[in-house]
């Protein structure tokens, strides 16, 4: 299993072969606050990178989640639909949102690694 890679939009990707497991970062779930609802894509949908693919809602915000990589949605985490709190509890683990079968496995490597992402969010704090 590879390390997580991050987008500037606070999604993470973890490669399992040619499958990218995707979710939102810990920073993102903290900023959102208590997640109350997750809307996931249909399995089989083909997406380009940066397509709006899912929605994560807290009480006061609804955030569109963008596909971090291009490919076909092959699985979604119905567990977070039933119990959205999982996203707060374990954003990088059990709180994953969807899996994308990659068109191009090298795509994920263009994203930030953990330490670059940490630098990136440190720069966001006002």
């Amino acid at each position: 299993m590879s390390e997580e890679r991050y987008t500037e939009e606070h999604e993470w990707v973890r490669l399992e072969g040619d499958i990218a497991v995707c979710g939102i970062s810990n920073y993102a779930q903290e900023q959102l606050g208590d997640v109350v609802f997750v809307e996931l894509p249909e399995v089989g949908r083909v997406v380009a990178a940066n397509d709006e693919i899912a929605v994560v809602e807290s009480v006061k915000a609804a955030s569109d989640i963008y596909a971090p990589v291009a490919g076909e949605v092959v699985e979604v985490n119905s567990g977070v639909e039933d119990d959205p709190e999982i996203v707060n509890r374990d954003a990088l683990g059990e709180g994953w949102l969807f899996k994308i079968k990659l068109d191009d496995t090298s795509e994920a490597s263009k994203l930030m690694d953990e330490s670059s992402y940490e630098d990136y969010i440190a720069g966001l704090d006002d």
């Binding site: 609802f37 809602e57 807290s58 009480v59 006061k60 915000a61 609804a62 569109d64």
Partner: peptide, 13 residues
């Protein structure tokens, strides 16, 4: 509740 459907949060969506 369920305010995320509404204009003051979701704006154009």
């Amino acid at each position: 509740t369920l305010s995320t459907r509404e204009q003051h949060i979701r704006r154009e969506k």
